[in-house]
Design a protein around this nucleic acid. Structure first.
Lengths: 245, 245
DNA sequence: CTGATATATATGTCTATACTTATTTTAAGG
DNA sequence: CCTTAAAATAAGTATAGACATATATATCAG
């Protein structure tokens, strides 16, 4: 009843979480039903309450359980579950695929922000930020296109960095950690400029990612990324195989 | 130094996490640098090591810290951070926007799966599954289009459910909890059929979401969702404001 | 019956302590 | 010098105990 998957002994809390998950998936404990309280589960699994608590917190974070003081723990009625994806550094992504990375800055100037960008950043319209447009290439073929606005007030040292050599993507990752980020995915038909820079035809469906990041000084950057046609962006949910914990 | 944001006293572990995050964002502790060990931080913050451990685990899960036994804790070199988004129930999403929800099943039959679907599900080509195509409407206008394959072997009771009345999306959420899910976003130009069902023109860029879910009996369902033109899908990262914990 | 108040209870959080385990560092042996 | 073994160390995990806090339920006054 402990370590079936690998030969390794799993932590007790994880075994408990797995078993509870199993009972939910196998409909032994159904949606909305109350499950035994921590004290009872602690007895059943021969563990301390703190251990059971940790296991159930994990499941609550996953959205599988709803927990409330005094009211107990219930299987979530509609498991609004959260999927995760990670934002890789473009160069690493390209190189990991065994291709040669390069990038080209198409335009870079200090200019007043249009209304749409101002709204997204929460800054007054007309404020002057660094506007940067660049193309990332994989083996010489366009890989993605970025149209970015940078806020020097939130990223000290930004003025010095000339993005001809080091790309903005990478400079930001290494020099401007953020506290909060917002994303959105959408689809757009390539306009004339998109088509030219991505070397595709006008009207081609493009996957568009908007991303904005903030730190405690304010908005750092907002970017519109247009991916090469056919590119897809993966995410997943469930046991996290590798990495930490 | 405790509760600045709200008047409420925040848990100690969260204060510690916030403070460490602040030090990273303000570059007091830089990328790749080793930070004090749990015991030292416990002294600094006047907390038990377990509390510090919990705070740092959170940051490690966020991808902000790299932790290794004996080697200590370092600020992540390239913070491959994870963004989360949630998959809402279509009907609720529509109704929350104050619109009337309806849906229509376009086709439903038991048929052998094509190679591409077989690959995605990990099932042999030609296996017979339920194939379902439906349109979701908001205030009578097409909202999204789904093309779904359902595996009755992994979802007992599925055969009985006729999806004319109850939509598949909702039936699955309530009756077939899953253990693992995979997603991908992409963009496609609407083909003739997409255009007709979404009442748009052929060639229109559409945001496409592929999603596949599994439980311990195997793959449950895989679906291709085509959103109405202009629709975007949001995600975010950072302190999670509401809900659990 | 209604509304205010008290009580009970399940989860939330923290602590001190202990032991485990991966990994680095050091020491020993060839 | 290289290889191997031992020691040291920092995180990983578990535990019993304690107190905090939200909230469901019971109790009581009107």
């Amino acid at each position: 009843m402990s370590d079936k998957q690998t030969g390794r002994t799993m932590p007790k809390a994880q075994n408990i979480a797995d078993e509870v998950r199993r009972r939910i998936v196998e409909l032994k404990w159904r949606q909305g039903e109350r499950i035994p309280d921590e004290a009872d589960l602690a007895v059943e699994f021969d563990a301390a309450r703190a251990t059971v608590n940790k296991a159930l917190q994990v499941l609550a974070d996953e959205g599988l359980l709803d927990r409330k003081r005094r009211a107990g723990t219930r299987v979530a009625i509609n498991p609004v579950r959260k999927a995760t994806f990670s934002i890789p550094i473009v160069r690493e992504q390209v190189e990991e695929a065994g291709m040669a990375y390069s990038h080209r800055v198409v335009a870079q100037r200090f200019s007043p922000i249009p209304a749409q960008i101002a709204a997204r950043l929460g800054l007054p319209e007309g404020e002057r930020l660094v506007h940067l447009r660049a193309v990332h290439y994989a083996d010489g073929r366009p890989y993605q296109l970025e149209d970015r606005w940078l806020n020097p007030r939130a990223a000290p040292g930004l003025q010095q960095a000339g993005f001809r050599d080091l790309n903005a993507n990478e400079w930001l990752v290494r020099n401007a950690p953020y506290l909060r980020a917002e994303f959105s995915f959408s689809a757009e038909n390539a306009d004339r400029r998109d088509a030219r820079l991505l070397q595709t035809r006008q009207g081609q469906a493009l996957l568009i990612l908007h991303r904005t990041t903030w730190n405690d000084l304010g908005p750092i950057t907002t970017v519109r990324v247009a991916f090469q046609p056919g590119h897809c962006f993966g995410a997943h949910e469930g046991r996290d195989q590798g990495s930490n914990t």
